[in-house]
């Protein structure tokens, strides 16, 4: 039996649009991944604590409200503080090109924009944790 992949999918901030997050949760589940879904309005601290307790390899954040910069920075900062910076963070949402560069610079592993295929995102994550 190959090692389990666990991913945490969460919506940080106040944004309530969860179509993308839930579609991706389905896609990961169907590809054999254990998906911990924590739903809407999660604070960065809740997300990071959950990721640590659940020992996930990847955190998938979904943000469509434009608050991605602040929220991603917070999540990464907390991961560092809690010595869990090895947990990979990927982000999905409507995020301008310029911000994508900055997010990657600070440690976000990938940004999935509109039109991303589920299979590409799943593949990326599986490669990431290999």
């Amino acid at each position: 039996m190959s090692k389990k992949i666990r991913i945490l999918i969460a919506k940080p901030g106040l944004d309530g649009h969860d179509r993308g997050a839930k579609v991706m949760a389905n896609a990961f589940r169907d590809s054999g991944v254990e998906v911990i879904y924590t739903g809407l309005r999660q604070t960065p601290l809740q997300i990071v604590n959950a990721a640590i307790q659940e020992d996930v390899l990847v955190i998938g954040l979904s943000v469509l409200s434009g608050a991605h910069m602040h929220l991603c920075k917070e999540v990464l900062k907390l991961l560092k503080e809690k010595k869990a910076f090895d947990i990979n963070v990927v982000v999905g949402g409507i995020i301008p090109e310029k911000d994508i560069k900055e997010l990657k610079r600070i440690g976000i592993k990938s940004v999935f924009g509109p039109g991303t295929f589920m299979k590409d995102a799943v593949e990326f994550v599986k490669k990431l944790v290999k």
């Binding site: 389990k4 949760a25 990961f28 589940r29 169907d30 590809s31 054999g32 991944v33 254990e34 998906v35 911990i36 879904y37 924590t38 959950a50 659940e54």
Partner: peptide, 8 residues
Amino acid sequence: GGSFLGDR
């Protein structure tokens, strides 16, 4: 082997 762990 995949699953949703949603109780959390």
